[in-house]
């Protein structure tokens, strides 16, 4: 009985990602200072901050492609190889222009050395959910910005990593495409039960999507505040509810400090 309780308690505290004391310098300048963040499985965390606060650098460090000066990233308590648990999506869709949609989506799996048959099966399975089955033979330049971004999402999701890092993935899209993609994103992420860290400078986006908003400030880049977002009180379409506006006001106040 007690053991079970302890186990439950442990699971509760068991964070999927543990970002421990990250410091990062660029020459003499301190870009990130003492970043600590614990994220449990299934969470959607938005990181918001002014430009230059090092939020993209933080994502690069979490993804493993930039080495921090100090600190470490633990996934389920362990250090992991790049690309093993974490998928990273950048602002640009970064589709290879010489590959069609299906070949682009396959890239991550290909790099991990899966067989062609396995990759094909997986793409035909996933492309239906992503509404891309009609476009598999298309070249990237034949697609709209929203569709291209969807292909990039497919490429990130299909490798089945539990954690997704998003660096303003909708930043380059127009407002209408953005809002339809927001809804679609939420659906996809809950369907594939991902844990997400989203970096954005759009406060609405940060609140609309996340259940936790982390506010960063600049010089040096550090976390100054965290807000838990009650998903029950945030309607996906409604950015005029009192709850939403109050939260937004608080965050704007933090950012203008």
């Amino acid at each position: 009985m007690l053991k079970e309780l302890l186990k439950k308690e442990e699971q509760k505290n068991n964070n999927l990602i543990n970002i421990k004391n990250i410091n990062f310098n660029f020459y003499d300048e301190t870009i990130l200072s003492g970043i600590n963040l614990k994220i449990s499985s299934g969470e959607f965390v938005s990181v918001i901050g002014p430009s230059g606060c090092g939020k993209s650098t933080l994502l690069n460090i979490i993804a493993g492609i930039t080495k921090p000066k100090t600190g470490e990233i633990l996934v389920e308590g362990k250090l992991v190889n790049i690309g093993d648990k974490i998928s990273y999506m950048q602002q640009k869709d970064l589709l290879l222009p010489w590959r069609n949609v299906s070949e682009n989506a396959a890239l991550g799996l290909e790099l991990k050395g899966f067989s062609e048959q396995y990759i094909q099966d997986k793409i035909s399975l996933y492309s239906k959910d992503f509404g891309l089955e009609k476009y598999l033979e298309y070249m990237p330049h034949e697609l709209s910005g929203g569709l291209r971004q969807r292909v990039a999402f497919l490429r990130s999701v299909i490798v089945d990593n539990p954690i997704m890092l998003l660096d303003e993935p909708l930043g380059s899209l127009d407002a209408i495409t953005k809002s339809t993609l927001h809804e679609w994103l939420m659906k996809m992420f809950s369907k594939f039960s991902k844990t997400i860290i989203l970096v954005t400078h759009d406060i609405d986006e940060a609140i609309l999507l996340a259940n936790r908003v982390v506010v960063m400030t600049t010089n040096p880049g550090r976390i100054i505040k965290e807000y838990l977002v009650d998903r029950k009180l945030v309607d996906k379409r409604d950015i005029t509810s009192n709850y939403f506006i109050q939260l937004k006001k608080d965050i704007i106040k933090d950012l203008s400090l």
Binding site: A63, G83, S87, Y88, Q90, L94, L111
Partner: peptide, 20 residues
């Protein structure tokens, strides 16, 4: 950014030469 994207997938050097 393409290089970063390949790196974030854990790509080896050889894979990157060949595919990128």
């Amino acid at each position: 950014d393409m290089i970063r994207m390949f790196n974030s997938h854990g790509s080896t050097k050889l894979q990157m030469y060949k595919k990128l």
